[in-house]
Computed example of a mutant assay.
Amino acid sequence: MEFGERIVALATKVENQSEAIATEEATKNAFVMPFISTVLGYDVFDPLEVVPEFTADVGTKKGEKVDYAIMRDGEVQILIECKPSRGALRIEHASQLFRYFAVTNARLAVLTNGVVWQFFTDLDAPNRMDDKPFLVLDLLDVDETLIPEIQKLSKSSFDLDSIINAAEELKYVGAIKREIAAQFREPTDEWVKFFTSRVYDGSFTQRVREQFTGLVAKATGQFLTESVNDRLKTALGAGVRVDDDASDPVTSEPITNADLSRDTEIETTLEEIEAYQIVKAIACSIVKPQRVTQRDSKSYFAVLLDDNNRKPIARLHFNTKQKYVGLLDSEKVETRHPIATIDEIYAHADEIRAAVERYA
């Protein structure tokens, strides 16, 4: 299994099990140890590689422990502090990491709740852990651009110099991306005023602020959707393909010229792509990610195995007010399940996996 596939597999596990994990110990067993062993490739049962409950007395602080220390050549390389998966991470949780970072040879420290992984180093001052992470991995929303950097932490590809050299750029690029994402979700007054001043000549009064807050949010959302669609069309060869499954038991009417004409107007939406990624993440517990593909049509968005329209995994019916996820049985008879949000697709994970297993 490739490195990126191992992250996807763990991300799927986190998505499926996070609600059942209530304690810090459960978080370690279910998410943290698999990340160290399955993703990074270290033997969690070999004390020469991974030391649990690592102790290094610091001044008057005696007997304090960091949850894990990853070792190489007898030296501490990475310190890991864990918190329960249901709680949000705060810098206050890293007090022991700060102290241990100063008295060990570690250049990397990790604060995690098993879902979000924050990676720290000492960019601001030598041998003093920074207050802000240089890299943040969220297993519920994996940024694929970070995967090559995380791979540098793995046992087989460990490259400390490369990690440290890239840390400053990663820190600020990541922080800017998160700030942009926050503005897209809920624009601040400064963000609204910035764009309003470039398109509106009047004074920025309270009434104008209220009017343009909604307009800026709408415009940025549409811009993001259009950008995704343009990239899909480029990357996927126009981004749309007509599903030509003649054996489809649900749409048995013959295809007409009018149908073909309508299909030239297909627009793949951001919501369809997000739903496709959810189905793909579920399917990747059975098969490699590259085997799960998509085809959009006027009537529905199809998720397929091996780009074969005779191997449908799911169909997304998102073109009406009520959204449905269509699942097919062994006879390829489709049952449509209404959903209010795309997250509800996870409730049908077992059926999706069953469909993949039938073909795989």
Rank of each mutant, 00 (worst) to 15 (best):
A355W: 10
T213D: 13
I36L: 11
F45K: 00
D189F: 10
V39T: 10
V242Y: 08
I273T: 12
T12Q: 10
D46G: 06
A349K: 12
D263F: 05
Y276S: 04
T196A: 11
E351R: 04
V250A: 06
E149H: 14
V142Q: 04
Q77M: 11
T234R: 03
G74K: 06
V303H: 02
I80F: 02
Y42A: 03
E334H: 04
E64V: 02
D124L: 11
V240H: 05
R358P: 13
G202V: 15
A181W: 00
K323S: 13
L170W: 12
L232T: 00
A94N: 03
G4F: 00
Y300P: 00
E357R: 15
A56P: 01
D161G: 09
S157I: 05
L232R: 11
F31H: 04
A275R: 01
Y276K: 01
A94W: 00
D141R: 11
E186K: 09
R207Q: 11
N165M: 13
K321S: 08
I339M: 10
A314R: 03
I176E: 07
D189T: 12
G74Y: 03
A219V: 15
D43K: 12
N127P: 03
K13L: 13
L48D: 09
K28T: 01
K332T: 00
A302L: 09
T188L: 06
G326M: 06
A125G: 06
K28F: 07
N319Q: 09
V287Y: 01
A283P: 01
I7W: 03
P47C: 09
E75S: 13
E186D: 14
I147V: 15
